[in-house]
Design a protein around this nucleic acid. Structure first.
Lengths: 124, 124
DNA sequence: GCGTTTCATAACCGACCGGTTATGTATCCG
DNA sequence: CGGATACATAACCGGTCGGTTATGAAACGC
């Protein structure tokens, strides 16, 4: 369930136009037209991008007459950041260990050691 | 250029199988078969997922004989996290302001005030 | 050498994505 | 009222995506 949400959040972030819109929204609420301004795409394309962002919960909409004011919603982003952060810690540790190993054995650039010096203790 | 990279990173993260693989990689390097084990998909499908992760720079590969040892690479994730973090600060501020406003005016749930009490000073 | 294992590549399929044009629906305004 | 403005929706199109089966290539082990 959370999985699906993350799918949508990361999926929404994978497009530069949508990221650009979110960046713009950091400056404050705007209507759709203003949000679309920097991009050389049709108005329906903008509506679609907004729909994607909305489905992911990244933006919310408040109708003011014929205008739709769009604002960013930080919660899903925090979730995404948290996911990354949670695993990044492990990865970093892992990565550092590998780096240290390669460094120590002077094996940078493509390992593959075909005839291994068998004094390495096979660390399962 | 960085834009394209972020596209790839977020795009790679938008799939639950690939996120699962990264989670698994937090526990350490593995070969492709082991990485594929939890998923009920064909081996070529796994290869494709790995290719996506590799293109995004999230994963690196070292051939050991016929095995390909896969490991996580933290750098692109840090970049993604940093992007989120950079704008999340603004969004949060923005969001809190809006929340406070709605709270103060008791306007939670769908605003749109059709017949506005016209003592509000029209704040552009 | 030969079968097995590990993985990649090719070709194909249905679904979705990002874009378009055309049209519809409210709302504002003169 | 009627036109203009702000937006959504529908229908379509080419490309990518996630999956498949079939096949290929390289390394291991007997």
């Amino acid at each position: 369930m959370k999985r699906i949400e993350l799918d949508l959040v990361f999926g929404a972030l994978s497009d530069p136009t949508r990221r650009g819109m979110l960046e713009r929204l950091a400056e404050g609420e705007t209507n759709v037209r203003t949000l679309a301004e920097p991009y050389d795409i049709s108005q329906p394309a903008v509506s679609k991008h907004l729909a994607v962002l909305e489905r992911a919960g990244l933006v919310a909409r408040t109708k003011h007459g014929r205008e739709h004011r769009i604002r960013a919603v930080p919660a899903p982003l925090e979730e995404a950041r948290s996911w990354i952060g949670h695993y990044a810690r492990h990865w970093k540790r892992q990565f550092d260990a590998v780096e240290a190993y390669l460094e120590a054995h002077d094996m940078k650039t493509e390992a593959s050691a075909p005839a291994p010096r068998r004094d390495t203790k096979k660390e399962t």
